[in-house]
């Protein structure tokens, strides 16, 4: 169960090999890619930054929480930082389990919790030349639904959600 922040490009086949387990009948992987639009605006590139020490701690907690309530055998998540171009892999999640149900559910839970809780920030670079930190708008320069999707003030313990 490892959660890492990486400044280097991710290599999914190598990451998947680290999860090899002969007890596993299912391996589910999620890849998050840099897409060319968001909230109706054409996007040219994404810039990610992270508070790495806390991100890896909070990420490890997410993996442990999901493992504790499912029967998965292994799980890992790696998130990129730095300037990423369209089509690049921003985040990778891999999960192994004896059967597919838990593997799918756990993979979904890990990416959802990662997006909601881990101190990683995303700045969009638009083709217009403008930029914006996602979820950080305060003057309506971004659509509110983007901010509403991520709880803005979670419980300070970080453990009850």
């Amino acid at each position: 169960m490892t959660f890492r922040i990486s400044t280097a490009p991710l290599d999914p086949p190598a990451l998947a090999r680290e999860l090899l387990d002969l007890r596993a009948g299912a391996y589910v992987e999620f890849q998050g890619w840099v897409r060319n639009h968001n909230e109706g605006q054409p996007v040219e590139a994404l810039e990610y930054e992270s508070y790495v020490a806390l991100a890896e701690k909070e990420g490890a907690r997410i993996l442990a929480e999901v493992a504790a309530r499912t029967t998965i055998l292994g799980a890992a998540c790696v998130h990129r930082t730095g300037l990423l171009q369209l089509g690049e892999l921003a985040v990778w999640v891999g999960v192994t389990a004896a059967h597919r149900g838990d593997a799918f559910d756990a993979c979904r839970a890990i990416i959802d919790e990662t997006k909601a809780r881990v101190p990683i920030w995303k700045k969009e670079h638009y083709t217009s030349g403008a930029t914006g930190w996602i979820n950080c708008a305060t003057r309506g320069d971004f659509a509110e639904p983007a901010a509403a999707r991520v709880p803005s003030h979670p419980d300070p313990s970080g453990s009850s959600r």
Binding site: G32, Y48, S50, Y51, L54, H79, A90, V91, I111, T114, K115, A116, R117, V118, P119, I120, W121, K122, W133, I134, N135, C136, A147, V150, S152, P156
Partner: peptide
Amino acid sequence: ASWNTPLREGAELVFIPPVAGG
């Protein structure tokens, strides 16, 4: 940490804006 945590000499503080991984 909680917002009402008393400041301690030498502590390291980070303010966390709304996160947006993925």
